[in-house]
Design a protein around this nucleic acid. Structure first.
Lengths: 136, 136
DNA sequence: TTGCGTGCAAAGGTTTTGCATGGCA
DNA sequence: TGCCATGCAAAACCTTTGCACGCAA
């Protein structure tokens, strides 16, 4: 399982504190800098890889430009069917909870033989605010 | 709509010729080199951006490491009404017309106030063939 | 003590940008 | 002619890697 270094602890602690949001390496890095914690970027990447492999953290590919995002998997209310909605106008990212879309992946798999990967799939469209703005 | 330069024509021609598969900038570039056509990489990126914006080409993020892929949108299919499944392994694009899914957009709109645009939304995952191949 | 983890810097890759030139309309 | 498009090179960006050192167990 690997050593339990203080860098790993700090990283995990930070991800748990921010488990409602997506974090990328940039955010993590600047937070550590602000708090005076010195953790090399390479270490962050290497530890994140391990955390993902161990099933503790989930990695999302939402936007090629901002890089990969990471999120702690809260075992109490985690959902593998967690999808994302991204507004093409304002760029807002909305997390869609599993209750509403549960069964979507199953349906596509059972009826169409396709195994959807929610960590890569993003629904594009207009959020409520932007749809109103466009129609005016 | 912009000028109709010979670089743009060559690029579009090439994408149409290969409309069954997705192409990345590297492939496009080396093909042009082989044919003795000189088109700068920056131009390819800039033209692809425009083609995507104009709805002529669709852009895919399959894998963060290999970079973006592009594919001509075949206008014979009515791609505004159905969803698309993209296999991250073989690149196959599946046009999914399904009653069960057509209610999906309505559901998301009614419950989350988000207007999904099916022509821009792609489900990433593994097709039946590739899922079988991976498991072996 | 053993060997994994770390930090730094350099390298890897894709994509973007600045600027002078070229070409479409 | 006016302005957008192009080409080249440099830069920006995220991510990975090599290597010597440090630290957990």
């Amino acid at each position: 399982m690997g050593y339990n270094t203080k860098q790993r602890e700090k990283l995990l602690e930070y991800l748990i504190e921010n488990k409602e949001q997506h974090m990328n390496v940039q955010k993590i890095n600047s937070c550590f800098v602000n708090e005076g914690i010195n953790v090399g970027t390479a270490t962050i990447y290497r530890q994140l890889d391990k955390l993902v492999e161990q099933g503790i953290v989930r990695k999302y590919i939402i936007d090629e430009k901002t890089g990969a995002c990471y999120q702690y998997i809260d075992s109490e209310n985690d959902c593998h069917r967690h999808f994302h909605l991204k507004c093409t106008r304002c760029g807002k990212l909305i997390h869609l909870t599993c209750d509403h879309l549960s069964g979507l992946g199953d349906h596509i798999y059972e009826h169409h033989g396709f195994r959807v990967d929610p960590s890569k799939t993003v629904f594009y469209g207009l959020c409520a605010d932007c749809e109103g703005a466009v129609q005016e």
